[in-house]
């Protein structure tokens, strides 16, 4: 690990000024991803700005505007929050499907959103990787890509975003609050993450020095209350997803009234399945209709030999969770 200076600023303005003003500075929150990447030599900041004590922590109710989740909230507290469990179960379930009890106690909401890909070339500094070192190449395409992207990938990079939480947030239309050197702004999750394109070095649209301060989720509804997360992985627990899905479903009679579907571990960002959602709104609530709609969405997939299994896996996950939610729905 490279040597580094350490600072614990008093407030968010000071923190933003410190990181914005120094290209080699990084924020430190729970450290569960950053400290590991520093030890691996993938990250080598010369200054760590510890924001763990100054970031807001906890869930705040905003009248008429839903819940405001502080970026410093530990993943375990958010998963256990009564309002989240009752009104947005997909988010609690996604958090509990991720990592382990110890990691969830350390990991923060902001750090979870900004964790880096688990692509094995990205984390191995002896290998080329366009994301880690621009222009060095992408060995994953012809190498180990079983875990990697089937949707939205580019010639330059086929990495996936590993967060479970972010997939649920995508389905819930979450918005991210950011403080930067030129003020505060709020970004839809869609405008927060990006596809790799020709510049896979960046996972998000954030600028250096931008600090995530909170995540906002809209008011609970019949839709968000009937929501669920399902994750497929190589072990029963404590493993990243091969594919996952966050779903919310509202039916009226035998018809889909409203639906949200987001896939995890299929792309460089949580993949909101808007094509499938549009096809399902007003359609019959049946397994066949679910399957047909998801097939159209996944028609855009361009899998490689070792990750082609992800396409039917994602379809089956979505259809089975939608069907399970339909079972429970009041008629």
């Amino acid at each position: 690990m490279k040597q580094f200076a350490y600072a614990r600023p008093a407030d968010r303005e000071e923190a933003v000024a410190m990181v914005s003003g120094s290209p080699g500075a990084r924020y430190l929150a729970g450290g569960t991803n950053l400290v590991d990447l520093m030890r691996l030599g993938v990250a080598g900041p010369d200054l760590l700005v510890d924001v763990s004590a100054l970031l807001p922590s906890g869930v705040q109710e905003q009248p008429d505007r839903g819940l405001l989740i502080g970026a410093g909230t530990p993943n375990s507290d958010l998963a256990a929050d009564e309002r989240i469990r009752r009104d947005h179960p997909v988010l609690s379930q996604a958090l509990l499907a991720g990592a382990s009890g110890q990691l969830r106690n350390m990991a923060t909401v902001g750090g979870n959103l900004l964790q880096r890909t688990r692509c094995v070339y990205f984390t191995d500094v002896t290998k080329p990787c366009n994301k880690r070192e621009a222009g060095s190449g992408c060995p994953a395409r012809t190498g180990a890509h079983r875990d990697l992207a089937v949707l939205g990938a580019s010639e330059a990079c086929i990495a996936t975003h590993p967060s479970d939480m972010a997939v649920a947030l995508a389905a819930l239309d979450a918005r991210v609050h950011v403080s930067g050197s030129d003020g505060d702004r709020v970004l839809a999750l869609d405008d927060f993450y990006r596809l790799p394109g020709e510049d896979p070095s960046r996972d998000t649209t954030l600028k250096h020095g931008d600090l995530v301060t909170a995540v906002e989720i809209p008011l609970a509804s019949a839709l968000t209350r009937r929501s669920a997360y399902r994750k497929a992985r190589d072990r029963a627990s404590y493993a990243f997803a091969l594919g996952s899905v966050a779903v919310a479903l509202e039916v009226s009679g035998t018809t889909v009234r409203d639906v949200r579907i987001a896939f995890g571990s299929l792309a460089h960002r949580p993949w909101r399945a808007r094509t499938a959602e549009d096809a399902l709104r007003g359609a019959p609530a049946t397994a066949d209709a679910f399957s047909a709609a998801v097939e159209v969405e996944l028609g855009a997939a361009a899998p490689l030999p070792d990750n082609a299994f992800k396409v039917p896996l994602a379809r089956n996950l979505a259809v089975s969770v939608l069907s399970a939610l339909l079972e429970e729905a009041p008629r």
């Binding site: 350490y6 430190l28 729970g30 450290g31 569960t32 400290v35 590991d36 030890r39 691996l40 760590l48 375990s76 382990s100 009890g101 110890q102 990691l103 106690n105 350390m106």
Partner: peptide, 23 residues
């Protein structure tokens, strides 16, 4: 030393964490 095994678990502020990932 990478947060993958749990051997380093301690209680920090009363909560279990991996001490290998805490500076």
């Amino acid at each position: 030393d990478h947060g993958q095994c749990g051997a380093c678990t301690v209680l920090l502020g009363g909560r279990r964490v991996y001490s290998c990932l805490v500076l």
